[in-house]
Each structure stands twice: as structure tokens, then as C-alpha cells.
Simulated scan of single mutants.
Amino acid sequence: MSQALDEEHDALLLDLDGTLYRGGTAVAGAEAAVSRVRASGGTVRYVTNNASKPSEAVVEKLNSLSIPATNAEVSTSAQAGAALLAERFGRGDSVLVLGTAALADELAALGLRPVRDVASGPSAVLQGHSESTTWSDLAEACLALRAGADWVACNRDATLPTERGQLPGNGALVYALEMATGRSPEVAGKPERPLLDRAAVSAGAADPLFVGDRLETDIAGARRAGMASLLVLTGVSGPLDLLAAPEQARPDFVAADLTALSAPAEESAVTEQSAWNVEAGAAELTLTAVGEFPTMPEPFGESALAALRALCAAWWRVGSGDVRVRAGDDAAKSVLHGLGMQD
């Protein structure tokens, strides 16, 4: 009997927003999926680029949504950024913090001295998102960087999802300092490796599965770290994004949500599908059903996801970027409409 997808790996590394929850609501099936893994003795790590909150706040939010979590299971880009600096500076060395008090606490926990001004002679700058960052804060960091301080950014996320929509993220302010200094930071969070490597080490995992909803951070990060990855279609990246994904941001598995973890791995694999045929041309794909469906496939059901996997497998073998997709029959037309690939 085939193993479930989560059983083929020695730990699950899970993104948060868009994967486990959206805003203040848990994604359907998330609590059951995580509880099942933990009940069977599996190892879970919650991996987030958010550097503005302590791990306790992450645990509190997950638990409030009935998703079980402990502090030891949380890996943040703030922790990863602080650890990078602790590896190269001694106890008591000062680091200028451009971020929240929680980010400063991560430095202090590792023996470094968080400061807020260039007059303190900081050896480095650690930059994370904070809603209260001002021009004056950026000016202090700018002076420190121009004086030669090391620079670590917790992440380069250009935007931050909120209830009001996408707002400027840490990456937007990183860019401002890049323009002002002519320098670029070392990045601790996804898609760079430090955060994911630390999470895997924390889990004692040699073959983890990373699960996320965003190709350019979650999946690209997993690829850089040499980890298998599952893209869930509950957040940012959709079917068209997936089909056009560059090689460095292509997942091994694709599913609607986390319920795929308990299903056989081959059901979510990006590969040829027995129910669908795909003809690939130079700039066009044609999807046709193999045989007849007893009823018309649901627009975004499992048949549609199987078609998406088949399309990706065919296109990724021969091309990259945007491609036109044609329906070869009514079944294909139905699923392509559901996937947002045809009007």
C-alpha cells in the first residue's frame, strides 16, 4: 500500500499565512492535518518570514484556531537573522535593530546588545518589519551601514497581507536602504536558506517536506535548501502562476489544501496523469480527457487538479513562463474554466 505523503518525510515544515490560515480564519482541514501528524509521532515546524512577533504570539494564534503548537515548534526569520549575527559577533557586541521589540529580544537572548542609534557604535544592522518604523529609524540604519556595519534583513517580502489588502512589507524598506547606501543585505528568511536550514536542524530532519502557498518564497526556498515541497492552492499562488513558474520555483507536489498530506504521495505529484492527455507545442498546450467522465468534472475538484499537474508536467519539460492552454473537449473546457485558465 502506498505511503501517505507526510509519512514519506521525517518532518513537516509548514508556512503559516495562506497555508494554515488566512487572516483570522483557519484553512479548512489544517487543524485535522496537523493533529494527525502529531498524533502519529510526526515532527512539525511552523516556519514564518514574519519577524515582528515573538514565537509565543505565533503559538497563541495557532492555538486560538485549534491548531496545536508549542514554542519549540516555531521557527521565525527573526530567530534566523539573530543567529546569523551571533555566529560572527561576540557577546555584548551592539546591533542596531530596525524592527520590533520582539526582534530586539531575539538578539538579547543570544547575548548581543540591541541598540537603536548609530552613536552606540553598532557592529551590524538587523532589519525586520515594524509598523512603527520611521524615517529617523531608517536614517540611523543608513549611517551605520555607510560606516561599514554588517547588514542582515529578516526577509525581503515586498508586501504584507492584511485585512485591508497588500501593504508595504519589510522588503520595501530594505529597498529604500539599498537605494540610500548602494549596499544589499544578507537575507535570513525565505527564499534564502538560513531560516529553512535552522528549522530542519531544529526538527532533526534529514528529509523534510516544506508546505507553502507562495512560489517565490516558500517553494523557491525549499528548492534552494534541497527540500521536497508541496504547493497548496489556499493562498497567494494560483494555477496560472504555477504553470508559468521558473525552474527554481517549481514544487514536487500540488494540492488544493493540507488534506493531501494524508493521501498517497503519488496523488499530488506533478507528473503525467492517466485521466488527461496534454499535447505540448512551442507556445501552446492542448488538454484532452482520456476516455469519458461519468459526469462533467467539477470546475476545481480533484479532476481539475489532476489536469493542472499534467499541464505542468508537460510544459515544464519543454518550456518556461506563460503559455496558452487550449481545451480539446468539453471536459477539458470545464476544468480549465475552473482553474482560471480560460474564460
Rank of each mutant, 00 (worst) to 15 (best):
M1W: 03
M1D: 01
D6Q: 10
E8G: 12
H9Y: 06
D10F: 08
D10K: 03
L13K: 01
L20C: 04
A28S: 13
G29T: 01
A32R: 15
A33H: 09
V34K: 10
V37G: 07
V37H: 07
V44R: 06
Y46K: 06
N50M: 00
A51V: 05
S52L: 04
E56N: 05
V59W: 15
E60V: 05
L62G: 02
L65I: 15
I67N: 12
P68G: 05
A69D: 05
T76W: 13
S77G: 00
A78R: 04
S94F: 00
V95C: 00
T100H: 04
A102I: 02
L103D: 08
L103S: 11
L110F: 04
G111P: 09
V115Q: 04
V115H: 07
R116L: 00
D117V: 12
V118A: 09
A119G: 14
V125H: 06
G128W: 10
E131V: 12
T133L: 03
W135N: 02
A147Q: 05
A149M: 01
A149C: 04
D150C: 05
R156F: 15
L160P: 07
T162L: 11
Q166C: 12
Q166N: 14
P168Y: 12
G171C: 11
A172H: 07
A176R: 01
A176Y: 01
P185C: 06
E186R: 11
R193D: 03
L195V: 00
A199G: 06
V201S: 14
S202E: 06
G204R: 14
F210V: 11
V211I: 12
G212D: 13
D218W: 11
A220H: 10
R223H: 03
A225M: 04
S229D: 06
G235N: 11
V236E: 07
V236L: 06
G238E: 02
P239N: 05
P239I: 08
L243T: 07
A245Q: 08
A245F: 01
L258D: 11
A263P: 12
A263Q: 15
Q273N: 13
N277P: 07
E284F: 03
L285H: 12
A289S: 10
G291Y: 13
T295Y: 02
M296F: 02
P297K: 06
E302F: 08
S303T: 11
A304M: 02
L305K: 13
L305P: 06
A307S: 14
A314L: 12
S320A: 15
S320N: 09
S320Y: 10
S320D: 13
G321A: 14
V323A: 05
V323K: 03
R324I: 01
V325K: 11
A331S: 09
S334D: 05
V335Q: 08
Q342N: 11
